[in-house]
Design a protein around this nucleic acid. Structure first.
Lengths: 253, 253
DNA sequence: GTCCAATGGTCTGAGTCCAGACCATTGACC
DNA sequence: GGTCAATGGTCTGGACTCAGACCATTGGAC
C-alpha cells in the first residue's frame, strides 16, 4: 500500500484543480427549504400563473419525492409569504395568489460577491444551454400540440401589456422552448438559469425599446424552430442571450 | 377568491406540460447516498486516480457541506466496496485503491427503460454542453497553468496504453475542458454527463480505430481552444460527440 | 527519543425528515 | 337533500443528519 500512496497536496499537482471543481455541495440538507425554493421559483417564473391551483399535496409530494409532512411545511411557508392560499374540501386546494413583481430599478442594491459570481456564471451558462436547446428543439419532430404550445407561449409574451406579466411570459417562453427538446437535463438547466435571470431582470426597468427588440428575437427563434432550422434557431437565441446579457452585466458589475 | 380559481386539470390546458417538466425531485433524501455517489463518480472518472489520497475527512465534509459523521458513513461504504483504503495517523488518510475498469462487451446487459431514457438524454444534453464548454474555453484568456493543464490532460489520453487508463484519461480530459471555462454550472453539467457516458463506454469494447479517431478529434479541440478559435472548438467537439453517440446509440437501443 | 500536529475514530443530544394512518371539511354528484 | 370522493389537517414512532467535542494513532520535526 505504501507504494500506491501519493499524498494529495503534492501528488500530480497539475491535476489539483479538477477535484476542486468537480466536488460540489451535496443537496441543501433541508428538504423543506429545497421544496420552498423550487415551488417559489416555479410560481415566480409563471409556471403556475396567478389564479391557478397547484396539484394536490399528495401528488406534489410524490413528484418532489418528499414526504407529505415536509411538503406541507413548505406550503405553510409559501402561504405565510403570501404566494399561495389554501382551501379545504373537495374542489379545494392551494391557489397561487402572488401578484407578479414589476421590474423596477429601485432594487439595484448591493450584491455580495458570491451572488455576483453566480449571476455572471448564469449568464455564461445560459449562452450555451438555451441556444443549444433551441437547436435541439428545431431538430426534433414536433407534433401539433407542441407547435401550438410554442406559438401560444410566444403570443403570451407579445400580448402581455403589464411589465410584470411580460416578465413571467418571457420566462415561460424560454422554459417552453426547453420543454420541446424533451430532455429533462435541458429543462433543469434552463429552469436554473431562468430563475437567476429572473431575479436580475426584476432589478432593471422595462424599456419599450428593449421589449420590442426582444420580441423580434423571440419571433425569429420561433420561426426557426418551427421551420426545423437548427442553426438559425441557435444563432437567433445566441443573439438574444448576448443582448440580454449586455443589458444585465452593467447591473451585476 | 372564487373568481381567481382555475382548477389545475382544466385551467390553461396547453400550459399543462410545463409544470410536469419543471418540477423535479428534490435531491436524494439520504445525504450519505449522495456523498457516496459523488465520490464514487469522481474516483471512477479518474478525478482521483488510483494511488492518490483523498482530502482529509474534515475538508471533504466541508466541501460537500455535510457533517463529518455523514461523510464518514459514505467513506465506510466506499471502503467496503473496495474503492478506497484508509490509514490513521499523521500522513495517513484515505487512498484510492480502485483498479480502473476495463471496457468490455460482456456487460451489454438488459437496461431498464428509465436507464435507457436517461442515457439517451445524457447523449443529447452532452451534444449541447460539451461543445459549448469548448467554445467558452476558447473565448476565455487562459494563463500558462491552464494551457499546460489542458495539454497534459490531452497527453495523458494519447499516451495511455491500457484501455482502462485510456477510459479514465478521456473522462479527465473532457472534465478539464469544462474546468477551463471557470463556470461551476458548466463543470457540474459536464460531470453529470460524463458519469453517465462512462457507464456506457465501459460496456463496449475498445477498438484501436476508434481510439485513433477520437484522439485526432481531441487534438483538434485542444488546438482550437489554445488558438482561441471558439467556433472551431465547438465544431470539433460536436463532431466528437456525434461520433461517440453513434457508437453508443446502438448499445443503448 | 520526545513532542506534537495531522489524521482517522467515537460519542451525544437536538433537530429534521419520513411513512403511513387517521381526522375534518367541502362541494360534486345523484 | 344525502352521499361520498377529494382535498387539506394532524399525529406518532422511528430513522437520518447535524454540530461539535473528545479519543486514538501515527509519523515528522527537532
Amino acid at each position: 500500500m505504501s507504494a500506491a500512496r501519493a499524498a494529495h497536496p503534492q501528488g500530480d499537482p497539475d491535476r489539483a484543480g479538477l477535484p476542486d471543481a468537480v466536488l460540489r455541495p451535496v443537496r441543501g440538507h433541508h428538504a423543506f427549504e429545497a421544496c420552498v425554493e423550487q415551488l417559489a421559483t416555479a410560481i415566480r417564473l409563471g409556471v403556475y400563473p396567478r389564479g391557478t391551483t397547484l396539484p394536490p399535496e399528495r401528488e406534489l409530494a410524490a413528484r418532489l419525492q418528499v414526504s407529505r409532512a415536509t411538503l406541507r411545511e413548505a406550503m405553510a411557508a409559501l402561504r405565510q409569504a403570501g404566494l399561495v392560499a389554501t382551501t379545504r374540501g373537495r374542489g379545494g386546494g392551494t391557489v397561487v395568489t402572488l401578484e407578479p413583481r414589476t421590474p423596477s430599478a429601485r432594487r439595484a442594491a448591493r450584491t455580495d460577491p458570491a451572488t455576483r459570481r453566480d449571476r455572471l456564471d448564469a449568464l455564461e451558462f445560459r449562452r450555451v444551454v438555451e441556444p443549444g436547446a433551441a437547436a435541439l428543439a428545431a431538430g426534433v419532430p414536433l407534433d401539433d400540440a407542441a407547435r401550438a404550445q410554442l406559438e401560444e407561449a410566444h403570443d403570451a409574451v407579445r400580448s402581455a401589456t403589464r411589465p410584470a406579466d411580460h416578465r413571467q411570459a418571457d420566462s415561460r417562453f424560454h422554459l417552453t422552448v426547453a420543454t420541446l427538446t424533451g430532455s429533462p437535463r435541458m429543462v433543469e438547466a434552463v429552469t436554473s438559469v431562468q430563475a437567476t435571470l429572473h431575479e436580475m431582470l426584476l432589478a432593471i426597468p422595462v424599456l419599450p425599446t428593449n421589449i420590442a427588440h426582444s420580441d423580434r428575437q423571440h419571433a425569429a427563434v420561433v420561426r426557426a424552430i418551427l421551420a426545423g432550422k437548427a442553426d438559425h434557431a441557435r444563432r437567433a437565441l445566441e443573439e438574444h442571450c448576448d443582448d440580454t446579457a449586455a443589458l444585465l452585466r452593467g447591473l451585476v458589475g
